[in-house]
Design a binder for these strands. Structure first.
Lengths: 109, 109
DNA sequence: ACGTTATGTAAGTAATCACTTACATTCTGC
DNA sequence: GCAGAATGTAAGTGATTACTTACATAACGT
């Protein structure tokens, strides 16, 4: 998971993921969306591929990239470890307040 | 979100998050779980706090830390942008195969 | 007030990162 | 085979990172 998170830190790499999400794109097209040099994007693509976040397919001289959503599995589980817990706490808190409210009504009635 | 992802890259920081998940702990107790020096952990705590992933509460000379699950909101949404899409694709694929299967049965029968 | 405990901050350092320009590789169409 | 297009790789560089040791700050108990 280290490689995935490390890959996700860089904003341009996150933008690349959005670009190849749903649409397969050649390296050149991807690079043209950014201000940095083409080699810089090529290096970013390597980082993303090594992390398992994108897949590469060669077609003639071009290389087509697409999202590999499975690559997000580990980090998704990690985030849910904390984020879902929050939802459960919110739910528990809501239920607690509901219970208090009912008890209060019971007293006054 | 940059600060959150940057904070999550470092493995010791992720471990700190697990430690203060559900349990409020003083800085010293947290540091004692690791091999690196106490100042190193203090610096990690600062990074996590600045990123909004943990909350600090002072009690006398001690500082108690606890998880701030809300801090995961942005990154959770970001990951779901890709991870949920995968689930939807899996679902669509399953439905497509199901449809094919039914059509095949219709022919042979 | 004073020593002790708990903790953060400063300064320095080796390693890593994102970027650049220059060069290498690989495929295609003539 | 060769020119050109699409792309990756190498080498170098300034900025950032995670760590260390040394020092500063703040609250407590006596």
């Amino acid at each position: 998971m280290d490689a995935v998170l490390a890959a996700l830190v860089e904003p341009n790499r996150r933008e690349i993921l959005r670009l190849v999400h749903g649409e397969e794109l050649p390296a050149g097209r991807i690079a043209s969306h950014f201000d940095v040099s083409r080699p810089a994007i090529s290096q970013h693509l390597k980082v993303l591929r090594d992390a398992g976040l994108i897949a590469e397919r060669r077609e003639g001289t071009r290389r087509l990239y697409r999202l590999r959503a499975e690559g997000f599995a580990d980090v998704a589980r990690f985030v849910e470890e904390f984020w879902d817990a929050r939802l459960q706490q919110l739910k528990a808190e809501a239920e607690r307040q509901e219970r208090e409210k009912r008890e209060q009504e019971g007293k006054t009635r």
